[in-house]
Design a protein around this nucleic acid. Sequence first.
DNA 1: ATATAAATCGGACGAACGACCGAATTGTGA
DNA 2: TCACAATTCGGTCGTTCGTCCGATTTATAT
Lengths: 191, 191
Amino acid sequence: MINETNEQTQSEKILSAAYACISTRGYANVSMRDIADEAEVVLSQINYYFKNKEGLFKEVVRMMILKYLKEIEASLKQENSPQKRAKGLINYFKNMLQHNPELFRLLYDFTGLAIWSPVFSSLLSELFKDLSDMIEKYIFKDLQLKELKGYSTKNLSRLILGSMFGTGIQVLLDQDEELPEALNAMQILFE
Amino acid sequence: MINETNEQTQSEKILSAAYACISTRGYANVSMRDIADEAEVVLSQINYYFKNKEGLFKEVVRMMILKYLKEIEASLKQENSPQKRAKGLINYFKNMLQHNPELFRLLYDFTGLAIWSPVFSSLLSELFKDLSDMIEKYIFKDLQLKELKGYSTKNLSRLILGSMFGTGIQVLLDQDEELPEALNAMQILFE
DNA sequence: ATATAAATCGGACGAACGACCGAATTGTGA
DNA sequence: TCACAATTCGGTCGTTCGTCCGATTTATAT
């Protein structure tokens, strides 16, 4: 009997454990022994399934990327008007920061890793591009040009993505409970 | 003869070397031996002057914080109108990303460290607050309320700071030379 | 049932790390 | 000049890390 439906394979257990460890403690503070323990698996199993630490981390990044792309597209296509879609995106981010900050920490952490490692920089760079394209597609496609005030929708999308990211990290660092409301101000672009 | 003007003391040499190493290779990829070599100093000297690795890194962070506060305030007070000051701030950021990306990398790196370490989170959290207050003071103080469209100047300042930070990291990851222009779109807030 | 492959296991390796120590050297004040 | 403190130096200690290996167990196909 292979792969009973409600049971995780070894490699899945490892991947889940790695995801959990890194998102709660940071990639720099997690060892392969930590992950093996969390997965209830012997250390050498990680090398068996993922070759080395970088191979495992790459899979975790891929997992995270899929999660972001899926969730954000879902939050964007819920509504119809550009304004409502922007609001939906903002709410998704505020919600994540409040109830699932680990996911945002993971993004920040791996983006930091990507700064110094070419292997990860291409992965993360693509994620930011995909997210920006998604914002452009769902929010700006239907807008009349006059509302863009001379700025390209590509740049505006990058700016919106950047403002969410940059505000998010401030929320994470600051215990001020009002800070997430700063994200609302992004709607000023559509008024 | 103590501390000849054009000569660095040992602790200054160590601090400069640490700054250089971390800003070009990331704090996670730099060892105390690397820093000692760069500073042309024996390893144990670092412990003598800074006690331990954390003590040294804290001083580097303090150094970086002063640099940011000083340079950004200078770029803000150059102009007089809120619009021009915003433009000056944007230009400072674009300039830094192009000619001194190490400085931005340093900020991103230590902010990432701050996520997981309480010691650094208070330092970085204060920096973001100070920068946000600075933006509020220099850009929004003179603006009429009607231009704020119901959003608090505090939140708008956080959003502006966040959009620069979040756009900056995208610029760093992406080799697209047009991307820094996305920062210009921030001026849409003042039109 | 048997041979072969896949998976699991415990353990060991060399390398790198931060911290620390005692000795040697240099500087300072009486 | 001398005693004492500050500084500099080379080296070592214990720990942790990622990787790798050989042996054992389990699954698969003939």
